[in-house]
Design a protein around this nucleic acid. Sequence first.
DNA 1: ATCCTGCTTGACGTTGACGCCAAGGTCAAG
DNA 2: CTTGACCTTGGCGTCAACGTCAAGCAGGAT
Lengths: 128, 128
Amino acid sequence: MTDTTTTWTIAQMADDYDVTHRALRHYEHLGLLAPDREGQRRIYHRRERTRLALILRGRRLGFSLEEIATILDMYDDQPGEVGQLRYLLSQIGDRRADLERRRRDIEDSLRELDELEQRCAEDVARLS
Amino acid sequence: MTDTTTTWTIAQMADDYDVTHRALRHYEHLGLLAPDREGQRRIYHRRERTRLALILRGRRLGFSLEEIATILDMYDDQPGEVGQLRYLLSQIGDRRADLERRRRDIEDSLRELDELEQRCAEDVARLS
DNA sequence: ATCCTGCTTGACGTTGACGCCAAGGTCAAG
DNA sequence: CTTGACCTTGGCGTCAACGTCAAGCAGGAT
């Protein structure tokens, strides 16, 4: 039941994902999105929506749009050739290492935040 | 035994943390670092090193230098006043929410990566 | 017919985070 | 006393990721 017929206009996309019209055009310019045209108008399908979601998650994680492009490419077309597949597997390894490093950074940050919060809470208790 | 006497030059800092001289000056310009002077020369103490480590971790996580500044401020000086403490606690909450969102994003990404890897591995097995 | 709304394509402007000189001070070594 | 290594302060350049006009098409409502 993954809907394949519904389409969206640029305004609906911008609205649904809380990005500007301009940003959508920018992503398209960089090849991250490739909406159809109906006459002049851009017309977005399901595929563009999942791609946009990936783009935005990438941005939240601090990836550059260029990095995001290569990530999208990874998911794009399963290559039929073994060499390509091996290459893709190595890329997956790289990405995973990157993400795991970020996760460690985040967990360290959260731990330090906890400490700080505890000290604060104690101070508040003492002072009131 | 946290050493409080050793100091470092800009070149040592740049070397130890693998950043450029220019970046260090930039961080100083924005108030993220505030090394002493010995005559003209910048002279970095332990404090600047821990700050720089926080800055770089922040950058890896995709925070802007401005956001990093507020984070550093949080850790800077424990305020003695209750109002300030409450404010700090609220900020800590904000940061934690942000970090936890990122962690979710990362874990989602890792899961999808796992799926993709599995599909790839299967394809390789089939083709060879 | 004209007006409004929503869209289009340029194209220049802006902000953040530095890179990259230029021009010169300082100090130990030769 | 000059050289070289290392440092200093400007200040212009650059790249990414859009923001912000400007000018214009297309189609339905008045």
